[in-house]
Nucleic acid binder design. Structure first.
Lengths: 233, 233
DNA sequence: ATTAGTTATGTAGATATTATGAAGAAATTA
DNA sequence: TAATTTCTTCATAATATCTACATAACTAAT
């Protein structure tokens, strides 16, 4: 419920739990512990951890069963941790809704790293990660799925032509486009208008995405030729 | 960019690429291939795949470098695939922004399973956990079993087409749908009517589920493109 | 510094897209 | 079959976007 990240460790081997715990605490996670399946579900319901590390060999209910029960009510990230190395077991684990599957003996460092990766993936601003282009340290972010452009974390409304011009420039960042090329790509070959129309779209785009539209840093003018996109990493 | 999922495989071993490819195709992924780092970046820019499987030992640019370059502009999920088994390498890989790290020799089945896990986490199409979806603090509640929609605790009657459009929008929350996409999903590909019919359904839906249909907060218009659903679960 | 050519920019009419209400057609139900 | 509901189309109003043009600012070369 709070901002801090918490992890529930479920394993009946006290030693393993305490090793993982110390690594996690060292990395500033809040830690909850459970030594059997029943306890795991209780603690889970009570504490709503941000992630669960789940051993599959538990003295009472099986880890798989615990996983299934958690999945009925939550999509919390689950990392399975087990001595079972059979292909079948791993596939089954992933199929049950696990987010990662680590076999014992394992390296605590790697486990912590994977905890970080899974959390980053699951909590990181809930965007559709694969469909996002971002430039200049998230100064300019384009969500391809939504067709949405964000400048400095603020949504800016771009028109269809503006969006298409921007995406064309970005897609071939290294290339300088002439006005005619942009027109034929964005407006179609049968556009019989004036090529300076592009200038107006560029002007409007710059107003929206440049920090200083007077001296643009994304959409650069190539004098005598056209425009190109330049993204700082 | 569409509903289908695509994977870019980057590996210089042709045999490995083709094995992975056949598994992926069998699981209905679209596959792109690259056999070196330069090609990988080109294909990546051109195709915007939903996920990248990246070998770290490439003949030209190192896989790490490719990963860094992709991460400059995209948060696409990356699964690293390599013969390096040193702890250090794995930690380094995860640190570069990889979403998973699999060592060779690997099991294709497990690789595919992990692709699925990562995509499940990163992409929009949510599999519904329960039979009830609720948004905006129960302002809008949809009971999938009953096919019932509640606005502000009041049941509102929605027609079959309205329900299907709403659920399609929700299922791929945040994706902007064109009218034609909605028509082909909801009314079937053999609908030979007018795409503006969708507008009327949207209008009617908004009357039923929006607090202020004049300025909708659930079903948003994306000018020149179509509509999308936007709400906190 | 001058000049010819090019780009930047504000504005406004033209064009395109979306919202909306109403009505007939089609489908469903009684 | 009649009654009811739902779907589709259409017309029109309300918005949003596009384009062209005029003029200012800039660039490169003489």
């Amino acid at each position: 419920m709070s901002l801090e990240k918490s992890v529930l460790i479920v394993d009946d081997e006290i030693k393993i739990v305490s090793v993982i715990e110390s690594y996690l605490i060292h990395n500033e996670y809040t830690v909850y512990k459970a030594y059997n399946g029943k306890e795991a579900l209780e603690v889970f319901n009570k504490e709503s951890p941000s992630l669960v590390i789940l051993d599959l060999m538990l003295p009472d209910i099986s880890g798989e069963e615990v996983c299934r029960n958690i999945r009925k009510i939550s999509r919390v990230p689950i990392i399975m941790l087990t001595a079972k190395v059979l292909e079948e077991d791993i596939l089954n684990g992933l199929d049950l809704g696990a987010d990662d599957y680590i076999t014992k003996p394992f390296s605590p460092k790697q486990l912590i790293a994977r905890v970080g990766v899974v959390l980053r993936r699951c909590t990181g601003d809930r965007q559709f990660l694969s469909n996002v282009l971002s430039f200049n340290n998230n100064d300019l972010v384009i969500n391809l799925l939504k067709r949405e452009v964000k400048k400095n974390n603020q949504v800016v409304k771009v028109t269809p032509n503006e969006y298409n011009i921007l995406l064309t420039l970005i897609k071939f960042s290294e290339k300088t486009f002439t006005r005619d090329e942009l027109i034929s790509i964005v407006l179609g070959d049968d556009f019989d208008g004036f090529d300076r129309t592009v200038d107006t779209h560029i002007k409007n785009l710059r107003q929206k995405i440049e920090s200083d539209p007077k001296s643009p840093s994304y959409i650069l003018t190539v004098f005598g030729v056209g425009y190109r996109f330049d993204a700082k990493p």
